[in-house]
Amino acid sequence: MILVTGGTGLVGSHLLYHLTQENDAVRAVFRTEKSIDLVKNVFSYYTKDVDASFSKIDWVKADITDVPSMIPVFEGIHEVYHCAAFISFDPKDYREMRKVNIHGTAIMVNLAIDAGVKKLCYVSSIAAIGDDEKKAIATEENEWNGDENNHGYAITKYGGEMEVWRASQEGVDVVVVNPGVILGSGFWNSGSGKLFTQVYEGLSFYAEGVTGFVGVEDVVKAMLILMKSDVKNERFILVSENKSFKEVLFAIANAFKRPRPSKKVKKWQSGLFWRWEWLVSKLSAKKPRMSKHSAKSLHSKTNYSSEKVQKAISFQFEEVETTIKKVCDHFPD
């Protein structure tokens, strides 16, 4: 049986659909019943007979940070897709991110070792790829730079990877994927889904920072191929194209046939905004809409190479513009 954590998230929900099509016995962890409805919505993008696919999943209510609830989850499991993560750029969430992304992964690794799991796929992030100013393009070989400029999410995802490598030393074959900004349908109020919602509703601002983007279906496809292959104990960047936020926002606007964002955000403007949001969050319980690190990312320019995965499994990525058009077609009017 195959276990999927984070099955109610963007990557996990799309992964679950594809796993059910292969008629594998699949078990997925969930925390609230409400979150399962989002998974059904994702399934509806692929098929009209949602219940037929959805009924193949053995849903278990559990928490990856709670050992007693997770022990029975591993009964009969031979493969694991660990997609669960806490994503935030708010410094206030750092302790919770450590709990989920590092401690939770450590629990997953320990239970996988005890259960004799054959192979584990860990969904990390390009945030865990080290910066190297000497290289024009970031690769899997970049050394991690643990300085204070790294934000909490990057630190905890890298920490999660360290736990996964421990599994590889204890007899569990592992593969780690480091996706860029994942574009996909179904989660319109979180992650990259907010970009589509904001543009649809009339976003005015854009920035020219550059990073790697990839479609969720490509992420899932690469994970499935890597797990079935003989590849083990390797990490792979998953990026279709390196693009500026301006290019991506403009492509979304074009697909929606909405006005493009017209006002460029300058560094001093984002600098003032994140400081104001920090002050407001200190004086209230309100979460900041922008942090120091998210403001920085609007202007930083980092290019990533997916050459390693392309060579390892002859993988071809879908163009970002094609992905954007597909996602926009699923957007609820």
Rank of each mutant, 00 (worst) to 15 (best):
V67A: 01
V67L: 03
P68H: 01
P68L: 06
S69W: 00
S69E: 08
S69H: 01
M70G: 05
M70I: 02
M70P: 03
I71Y: 00
I71N: 04
P72E: 00
P72W: 01
V73K: 03
F74A: 04
F74R: 02
F74C: 06
E75I: 03
G76W: 02
G76P: 02
G76C: 04
G76D: 05
H78T: 12
H78I: 01
E79Y: 11
E79Q: 11
E79F: 05
V80A: 04
Y81C: 04
Y81L: 07
H82Q: 10
C83F: 07
C83T: 14
C83K: 01
A84K: 11
A84W: 13
F86C: 12
I87W: 01
I87Y: 15
I87L: 14
I87V: 15
S88M: 08
S88T: 03
S88N: 03
S88F: 00
F89S: 12
F89K: 01
D90Q: 09
D90T: 04
P91S: 08
P91M: 06
K92G: 03
K92T: 07
K92I: 04
Y94L: 11
R95H: 12
R95N: 14
R95M: 10
E96S: 04
E96T: 13
E96G: 00
M97Q: 15
M97A: 14
M97N: 05
R98D: 01
K99H: 13
K99W: 07
K99E: 13
V100W: 06
V100M: 05
N101C: 09
N101S: 09
N101Y: 05
I102L: 07
I102K: 10
H103V: 12
H103M: 08
H103E: 14
G104N: 04
G104C: 09
G104L: 10
G104F: 05
T105Q: 12
A106H: 10
A106C: 01
A106Y: 07
V109M: 12
V109Q: 13
V109K: 14
V109D: 13
N110S: 15
N110D: 15
N110L: 07
N110T: 13
L111Y: 00
L111C: 01
L111V: 04
L111E: 00
L111K: 00
L111H: 03
A112K: 11
I113P: 07
D114K: 15
A115H: 05
V117Q: 05
V117Y: 01
V117K: 05
K118F: 05
K118Q: 14
K118A: 13
K119M: 09
L120D: 11
L120M: 15
C121Y: 02
C121F: 03
C121V: 11
C121T: 09
Y122W: 06
Y122G: 08
V123D: 02
S124L: 12
S125M: 12
I126Y: 10
I126S: 08
I126V: 15
A127G: 14
A127V: 10
A128I: 09
I129R: 06
I129V: 15
I129N: 13
I129M: 14
